[in-house]
Design a binder for these strands. Structure first.
Lengths: 279, 279
DNA sequence: CCGTACCGTCCAGCATACTGAACGACCGGC
DNA sequence: GCCGGTCGTTCAGTATGCTGGACGGTACGG
């Protein structure tokens, strides 16, 4: 099975050119233990599975070792974290809570339905994501029948400016909002050599996307993989714009196939936008 | 689309006959704020989407209102919770963390591969779950092509003694462990009238399962829906036994189809047990 | 229109949870 | 086999975060 499937492992975090500061000190006024717990989970999420001990956590977070140990103990009791030997890693309860959250996003449920019935029946991998700042979070994925599979399902964060979903969502922002999010940013970290390197390049691309109606990620996230994305207005209250995308190997993305892919995307966008559609 | 799909909404939590005590007081010695935060998340997970305010949380948890407000503020800053008006609900970061956790469970990744290639190509809905105490948590699901869809994906918890996955996993426990988990339990809450009502009934069923090699949930979880489950030994260190199941409408589960379903299950179990198989 | 009841937020005093250093165990290396 | 380094755990003192009451706003019902 696995030999028939090419597993594509997307590059990991830290793709955004962090503006220097390594987070010196900030909002630790209210319930600091909770804020610290969240930061502990963040560290564990960087390399899930790898257990981390109190000492390493204390070093990376700049916090007292015993405080970390206390918090980890509480997290373990709650199931949010599990003990591996003497260290800690993300726990199963997070999957339960994450699933509970996803069940509240109507568009995710509808996406699963819709992605199995694309009008052209193209059966490529299709994903659903939401924009958050300058990153996109993937909330759902439907694997096609192609012997190519993206590793890891939902929950992954990728930079918005190098993904089809991210660019499609960014292009839907108004000028002021876009400028606000890009403030202080000049150069962009490049996941691959095809990705935009400057904000100006990105802005030109966003203009094209607005004209064209959909976004293209031409090996910007990963060599050999292309992605077509379209914006989907968020229906949930506080959420940013969403997007759907179709992912396929570049060798399969011939010019004659693009119209069908775009048709699928347009249909997905229309379907997931319809406020009358309720599960 | 939705009209072509029958959405099955499984019954919700609280199916286990709680042994009286509503959790009077317990481990709140280490980092109480973290423990409280976890309990807040638990409350929100009961009815995801429905925002809850500090007052209601304080009432249900028996904690001071202002403490709750502080913790919720910290949770919101971390993205684990999102503000809806003046209340709070589960936040997107939980989906990211949950996805990170799931990516650490090798068997989940392999399940997604394997479930698309069942030997008989039966294309029914198949799920993967792990036993935890007397409940099972569903970690992955592959929807078949049938116009029947279970609502909500992974992360759902259901009682072990009324589900095919749960019973298959329970049957793999040794006598002592089983007795320990069932200690103090006599009657079982029945999700449907077909479910076992007493521990003795359950034990008889578990014996049959051990002889037969797979478990049957004959409308015990939901009227009109049957489920076949098989145990899969956990490969991860601290985890309990796992199980896979095939779900289908009772009207489709004719006697002549059962052998094929069982063959699929056996193949799944063999595939996901093989320690050589690595993503 | 007004009263009431409830909610979410704010603030100061006190109890409590956090800190930091010391302990014992473990591992790896000169 | 000895020793330096690192780890996770423990414990008492103190600074810190939690508590409960009061405040202003809102929605509902009279």
């Amino acid at each position: 099975m696995t030999d028939r499937h090419l597993a594509i492992d997307l590059p990991s975090v830290d793709l955004i050119d962090a503006p220097a500061a390594v987070e010196p000190v900030d909002g630790e006024s209210l319930a600091p233990a909770v804020t610290r717990a969240a930061r502990i989970l963040d560290v564990m999420a960087e390399r899930p599975g790898e257990p981390v001990g109190p000492s390493e956590l204390a070093r990376r977070l700049g916090l007292p070792k015993s405080s970390i140990a206390n918090i980890c103990g509480a997290l373990a009791d709650a199931g949010l974290v599990r003990r591996i030997g003497t260290g800690f890693a993300l726990g199963r309860r997070l999957a339960e809570l994450g699933g509970a959250y996803l069940s509240t996003v109507d568009q995710v449920q509808e996406f699963y339905d819709a992605s199995r019935q694309l009008p052209t029946g193209s059966e490529e991998t299709v994903q659903f994501a939401v924009l958050d700042g300058l990153e996109v979070t993937y909330l759902a994925r439907h694997d096609g029948r192609q012997p190519v599979r993206l590793t890891s399902g939902f929950g992954r964060r990728l930079p918005a400016f190098s993904t089809a979903t991210g660019k499609a969502a960014l292009a839907s922002l108004d000028e002021a909002e876009l400028r606000r999010r890009l403030a202080g940013l000049t150069t962009l970290l490049q996941p691959t050599r095809h990705a935009h390197r400057t904000v100006d390049e990105l802005l030109v691309d966003l203009d094209e996307i607005r004209r064209r109606g959909y976004a293209i990620d031409d090996e910007e996230t990963m060599e050999g993989v292309v992605c077509y994305g379209i914006m989907i207005p968020a229906r949930q209250v506080g959420e940013g714009p969403c997007a759907a995308s179709i992912t396929l190997l570049k060798v399969r993305a011939t010019a004659e196939r693009v119209p069908a892919l775009v048709e699928d995307l347009r249909w997905l966008a229309a379907t997931l936008s319809d406020p009358l559609r309720r599960a």
